[in-house]
Design a binder for these strands. Structure first.
Lengths: 116, 116
DNA sequence: TTGAGTGGTAACCAACTGGATACCACATTT
DNA sequence: AAATGTGGTATCCAGTTGGTTACCACTCAA
């Protein structure tokens, strides 16, 4: 006889907050941008330097997305020529421990990939 | 005068483990699948029931990816008709705290989205 | 006046992704 | 023999994504 379908032992709030958070992290380089901002405020050009393979187009898109979601703030710096500085918000900083955990798992994934 | 480019205060190991981990989580529904498996072993059909909007095609793809990375194990159940059960590996379980943190941030993202 | 350095944007395009639909093999139940 | 319930796969296709390239406005130094 076919097995009964068991009720799930875990629940998911409607309109899933995990999906919401992942929508923010799914874009290319998004976790990397957050990672580098975790070291303190960073200018556009500095981020391009931190993440050499990111294009200006994508970096710009990511920063605006993160800004619109309240993860990052943009601040104009009154230098010459004027410059823009990006920083994590308080909410953005709450992502750091999670991202560190993910990186830790990533390390083990790589080890496994080598040994198999 | 132009601002100097500051050295980043955070470093990234070469061939980034965070990127590695995100490659695994980026696929559609991947975090949700892991979330539901965190409640214990789950069959293909049960997962489809847990995540109603996922297609068989994508669920199948996600499970095989997660299996090939050592996050999930597939076990044949000797029932009739035969059934397949998926379970998190030990490494897979290490993702749970990170995913819970992400969901917590996701909740605050939604609150912010409503109030702004 | 020209050039470099700031922080971007616009247009184009190939590749990837995932949704929908149809379909399959197999084992039981009816 | 037919229907149902397992766990999928094959094919098609439209939408999204992000890389590339070119370009822009502005400020200051040479």
């Amino acid at each position: 006889m076919a097995l009964p379908v068991r009720k799930s032992s875990v629940e998911f709030p409607p309109n899933c907050p995990l999906t919401e958070c992942m929508a923010m992290l799914r874009g290319a380089w998004a976790p990397n941008v957050i990672w580098y901002l975790s070291g303190g405020p960073r200018r556009f050009g500095e981020l391009r330097h931190d993440i050499p393979r990111i294009s200006a187009r994508v970096l710009s898109a990511r920063l605006r997305e993160l800004e619109s979601r309240g993860i990052v703030v943009r601040r104009l710096v009154d230098s010459s020529p004027p410059s823009a500085e990006y920083d994590l918000t308080e909410l953005g900083r709450e992502l750091i421990p999670a991202i560190k955990s993910l990186a830790a798992v990533g390390t083990k994934l790589k080890l496994r990939a080598v040994s198999c």
